[in-house]
Structure formats: C-alpha cells, structure tokens
Design a protein around this nucleic acid. Structure first.
Lengths: 226, 226
DNA sequence: GATGCCACGATTGTCGACAGGAATGTCGTC
DNA sequence: GACGACATTCCTGTCGACAATCGTGGCATC
C-alpha cells in the first residue's frame, strides 16, 4: 500500500534543520550529507538540495562546491555585522511604525508580549527563541516596510545562529520586559523613546554575545594557531 | 568530438537574464519557460531551475507553483518599499563610511566616478546601468558593512528592474554628478553632508520613478478593467 | 622514518525520463 | 446558441541513475 503521509515539503525540512540549529542539537561546523538527510526526511536528494540553497541564503549553513554543506560558524565580525544591520534597519522600522500605528496593531503587539511572558514562565526555550524573533518581525510587518521585513527575517535567523554559538547557556536576561517597554513607547507615540529603546535592546543583546564570545575558544584551527 | 566550450554556469545564466531585463529586451510579465531557456543556453533544465531560484530571490522574476516563471512586474508600492529600504540602509552605510574612509578608498571612489563619466560620454546604456549600481555597492564595500552590502546588491537589482519598468526612455538626469558630489563630501569628511546628499540622490531617483509610473498604463488586467 | 604519488571510496553535480497539475480546446446537452 | 463537463496538451515538479570531483589511505621511494 502507498504511504498515506505526504512527503515533507522544502519548508518543513528547512524548519526542522533551523530548529535543530537553534536548539543546539546541530553544532556549528557539523557536516550535513545530502543522502543522509534524504533518508531521514524520506525524500529525494533534489529536495534536500533545495532546502540547502534556502538555508545558505539565510546564512545558517555553508555550502562549499564539491564539499557539501555544514552548519555555519559565524565569526565575531560577522556577528557584529548582523547587529549593525539590525540597528540600521530596525531603527528606521520602529520610527516608521510609530508614525502609522493603530489600535489593532497595538493589540497584536501586546498579545505577542503576553505570549512571550507565558513562554518564559513555562521555560519553553524553543518557544522563547521563536517568539523573540517573531516580535521583531511583527514590528516590521506592522510598519508596512515589506522589503525590510524580508531582510529582517534573514537577520533574525542569523541572530538565532549567533546566539546558539556564542551563548551556550542561554542567558536569562533576554526576557520580554524590554519588548514590553518598547511596545508601550510605541503605543504612547513616543517615537524618539521607542527608537532609543530598540537601539538599547539590540545593544544589550549584542553585548551579551561579545562577553560570551570572548570567553569561547576559537573554533577555527587557523585562528587557534596563527 | 566533444564540445570544447564549457557549459554555461548558473551565474552566467543569471547575468544574461538580468542584463536582458535591465536592457528591456525582456519585458515585465514575459513568461520564461524552463525548456526554452535550457535549449538557448544549452544546459539541462535543472540548471535553469537553479538560476530561477536565484533570480526570484533577487526579485527579478516571479515563480508561481505549477505555473512557471515570468519577469516580475513590481508595483508602485513595492518600488516605494525598495527606496525606503535603500534610504534606511544607505544612510547608515554612508555614515559609517565617513568614519573609516582612507586614501585608497577615496581613490577607488573617484576612479569609479570617472568610469561612470566615460560610460555616459560613450552613451553605453548597459555600462551606465551596471556602473551606477556598482557605485552604491562600492560604498557599502568600503564601509565594511558586509551584510548590508549583500542586501544592497539585492536592492540594486530590484531598482534596476523598477527603472526598467517605470522609466521607458531612460531619463538622462541620472548622471554621475550626484555621485561625484557624494564622493567629495565623503573625502572631505563631511558626514552630515554626505548622508544628506545620499538621501537627496535616492529621493531624486525615486521621484523620477513616480512621475513616469503615474503616466504608465496599468499592467494588471484587473486594475485595467475594474 | 618521512615524503610524495597513486588508487580507491565517498560525496556531490548533472542529466534524462516519468508523473502530476493547470490551462485550453472540443464536444455534448440544455 | 450558450453553458458545462471532458479530453488533450503543454509545462512544471520530482525522482533515480550516471559522471565528475575531492578526500583519504596505502605503497613505493628517497
């Protein structure tokens, strides 16, 4: 009899791999063999290859010709790059959002923060990571900046990988309080304060990265020996 | 005897299609059949499919499941989105560049402007489009904002398509003068002036789009008949 | 004993063919 | 004569297999 289950879509495969990386089940540098994954997901190699192309685009994996794929190992410099981009983009996005926020938008933001609080209370790490990223995406969506929303989706994926690499024990101070303050500033129409809060929030996250990263042993052999 | 020429790479195919769109040899909405292109480039459909994935990522073509690919037709709103993103990103990039510009960087910028002048003098439309985009990419490269450089590469591709759609007769005022002024402001270390010039430059380009766009007939059938 | 070369195994890149789905043209019926 | 259902045809989506390439281990040589 034929398999009643439909075969996994490319999106599903990407999601699963992304989750595995975010939850540190897949360590940076780990090799990803096409045939192996094809067997795991019960699909052909062609579909795995499509998923690889998307994951490489998001900076989650590194694709070397004739060498295959491995989980990316972002350097400190690349991490700084990501946060520079996020400050540049999200600053303008918040600014724009303050100029066009409406009641339904405020309600959605507050509901999201509540969901984040619930995830924190339940110690659901997977949900915390997902919701924290989704909060920033929601701000971009409500701001009406369609293209920057796509870019931000990319940046948030990379941020997840960076925190996975450089924050081994998931520091607890990344709570939803800063998000809540930001929402209230937006709701009150305090543009300058909202922009400043967003900048401070991103600086805060980046600072945690730097502290951990400095203590982390170098993963690249060349960097370890030079 | 075997064909001595190596088969076209994915990059080559993307480049050729991009050029065809930028030079208006491929009109927005034109369908792109896989097999047809496979025959033209003398490669298999798989490689065309890879190229399609890249071109869709850059927003140059639209990929509809089970329907195939066609040259994208950016709406006015999407065009505004692109310029909003460019203002947000390039403003910060110029700011950063002013803080770390050095003599070799200034030399490269001036040399590039000279190349643009030469292309204008030679009325080489293809080179003009290419160099104009490359100028903005060069600024991003020199600023050291690696990630935003990638994003900007994307945005410049989309801008090329937008100008191809909404500027049928290639307005001539998009000359290299504004680029030259910008370079000199950067060289002089006038950060605020450089940022203002970049913003004005992008506003200028966007305004030309809007004027032309309003005069353009609607391309969507529903919008044409409503 | 160390080093350079060669062959083997493994993995990726590519291709051709088959199957599935959507749009179009045609026929039968009201 | 017009509408709806069906068959056809084209195109895309997917798969399995073959060919090219790279890393690795063994072997001969210095």
């Amino acid at each position: 009899m034929p398999d009643p289950r439909p075969s996994a879509t490319v999106e599903t495969i990407c999601e699963r791999i992304w989750l595995a990386i975010a939850e540190r089940r897949l360590r940076p540098g780990a090799r990803l063999k096409e045939e192996q994954l094809a067997e795991i997901f019960e699909v052909s190699r062609a579909r795995i290859r499509q998923a690889f192309a998307m994951l490489e685009r998001d900076g989650l994996i590194l694709l070397v010709p004739n060498r295959g794929a491995c989980v990316a190992e972002p350097t400190i410099d690349e991490a700084r790059d990501v946060f520079f981009a996020r400050r540049a983009i999200e600053g303008r996005v918040v600014e724009r959002l303050c100029a066009r926020i409406d009641a339904p938008g405020i309600a959605r933001l507050r509901a999201h923060v509540e969901a984040e609080r619930a995830a924190h209370a339940a110690r659901d790490r997977s949900a915390i990571v997902r919701l924290s990223g989704a909060f920033h995406l929601l701000i971009a969506e409500l701001s009406g900046a369609g293209y920057l929303q796509q870019v931000l989706r990319d940046l948030i994926s990379r941020t997840s990988l960076i925190t996975a690499v450089y924050q081994p024990q998931m520091v607890a101070n990344c709570g939803p309080d800063e998000h809540a303050d930001l929402v209230e500033a937006i709701a009150a129409g305090h543009t300058a304060r909202a922009v400043a809060l967003m900048a401070a929030h991103l600086d805060h996250v980046e600072r945690d990265i730097d502290l951990q990263g400095a203590a982390d042993p170098p993963r690249d052999l060349r960097e370890a020996l030079l």
